[in-house]
Amino acid sequence: MSDIVLQIDGIEVTANEEMTVLEAAQKAGISIPTLCHHEKLEPYGACRLCLVELESRGRSRLVVSCLYPVEKGLVVKTRSEKVDRIRKMILELLLSHAPDAFDLQDLAREYGADKYRFAKEPSFCVHCGLCVRYCAEVKKKEAIGFVNRGTKREISFIPEIASRECWNCKECFPLCPTEALQAAYVLAKAIAFPATAE
């Protein structure tokens, strides 16, 4: 396994060839904001917040660092005017879904995002897929999945599996960047056990 040397924010970073730009940056102690990344899970590229600017052969382009494999001689900028502008926009769009999520508010402060810019449409879920992927990849239970598509896409528990597995697990709860997951679980529980619903 050969080491690859690349430059992130002016610092020389060595990485091995299976790493992504995000992992290389994290190894070098450079922080890149993420919502849908989890070290135990396959990269997913849903939140687009980890987007960085790459410079190669005199041109710059934007890629999501959690999916982009490291390359020899890559020049990465994790903060630039362009990157910050796009991250601010992404945050504002996500905040219209989940205006009160703490993770999003912290990032909004950093990037100067205005949570009232877009009309609120609180679905509370930002479709990061952490719960869905964690359940499928780590726990192998597949109790929760996405249903519908487009603007109606949402997470949904399978009541039969949830009533068997979720009560003793709940490991996906702390992963959720908003509080949508817990609400969905309460709903699934209410459907699975109508008698015990509070």
């Binding site: 869905v132 499928a136 597949e142 109790a143 929760i144 999945g145 996405f146 249903v147 519908n148 598509r149 949904s156 399978i158 599996i161």
Partner: peptide
């Protein structure tokens, strides 16, 4: 095939 996958396709 997991039921979540089928549900995802059937609702998509």
């Amino acid at each position: 095939v997991p039921l979540t996958r089928i549900q995802q396709i059937a609702t998509f």
